[in-house]
């Protein structure tokens, strides 16, 4: 009750501030014009701009493709970095350099280098892919570095005594990892993993710089053609529709895990 009241007051104050600002009507026209928002949403290729709604489908496909590849590549990197023994040393070193490198370089640079550099090499198959493919490759390279650290933190969260118990039964390193360590690590891994995926959903917009018509690029084309920014508002709403469910789902999982822990369920 009190919370509803305070929400109404705060929102009302913000709306008043916006509506009473000297440039308010100007901004309302350039960012929130219903006509332009509708035009941007449905698009009109003859006029030189594309549907933001349709373009969002490319973001979704890039996100899904990248997600699967990231989960696999990052797990591989994390497992290599957790490995023991001199045989694995070169691979461990490569993985460490990889993670340092791609965590240190801005994603937008990786996209540039892959998207413009690889085609310029004029290689047989590699140089003739679409912008979206280079974009996904860049997302995978960059995000795998982060996500591998999420995995690693999860693996380390399982107590050493569990490793000792598994190994003392004669289980190999890999069998212990698969049946004892990973299942226990999952609950620590999932929330930060979903957070990274929320940010991955947004970052698919960066692939627009290579010319791929994703939602943000479609909005840009609209504003270039019609000189009205309402297309960006449509794109913003589209990204929110994409990210908010995942964010809510993450919170839901965290809350559920907390409840289970409090209830003393199998940990």
């Amino acid at each position: 009750m009190l919370s509803t009241a305070s929400t109404v007051v705060v929102l009302g104050a913000l709306a008043a501030l916006f509506l009473l600002a000297p440039g308010s009507s100007e901004v309302r026209h350039t960012f929130f014009s219903p006509h332009d928002m509708w035009q941007a949403l449905i698009g009109d290729p003859r006029q030189g701009y594309y549907s933001v709604g349709e373009a969002l489908w490319l973001n979704i496909r890039m996100f899904l493709a990248a997600e699967v590849l990231i989960l696999a590549l990052a797990l591989l990197i994390a497992v290599i970095r957790q490995s023991a023994g001199p045989v694995m040393f070169p691979l461990r070193m490569i993985s460490t350099i990889y993670v340092d490198f791609f965590r240190g370089i801005p994603l937008i640079l990786v996209i540039f280098v892959l998207g413009f550099g690889v085609p310029a090499l004029s290689l047989r198959f590699l140089s003739s892919q679409s912008a979206a493919v280079y974009g996904v490759a860049a997302l995978v390279l960059s995000y795998s570095a982060y996500v591998s650290e999420v995995y690693r933190a999860g693996l380390n969260s399982v107590h050493q005594s569990q490793v000792a118990a598994a190994r003392s039964l004669g289980l190999s390193h890999w069998t212990s990892l698969r049946h004892v360590i990973l299942p226990q690590a999952v609950r620590t891994i999932i929330p930060p993993l979903l957070n990274d995926f929320i940010s991955l959903q947004k970052d698919t917009a960066l692939v627009g710089i290579l010319g791929a018509i994703e939602a943000n690029k479609a909005a840009e084309l609209y504003s270039d053609t019609v000189f009205n920014y309402s297309g960006y508002t449509v794109a913003a709403i589209a990204f929110l529709i994409l990210t908010i469910p995942l964010a809510r789902f993450t919170d839901h999982l965290i809350a559920k895990d907390r409840r289970l822990r409090l209830a003393g369920a199998p940990t």
Partner: peptide, 20 residues
């Protein structure tokens, strides 16, 4: 070492059962 450990059972102070 995995082969060796098959033949040796060890039990720890803290049980170390697999909780999941």
């Amino acid at each position: 070492e995995n082969l060796v450990r098959r033949h040796i059972g060890i039990v720890f102070q803290a049980f170390n059962l697999f909780p999941h």
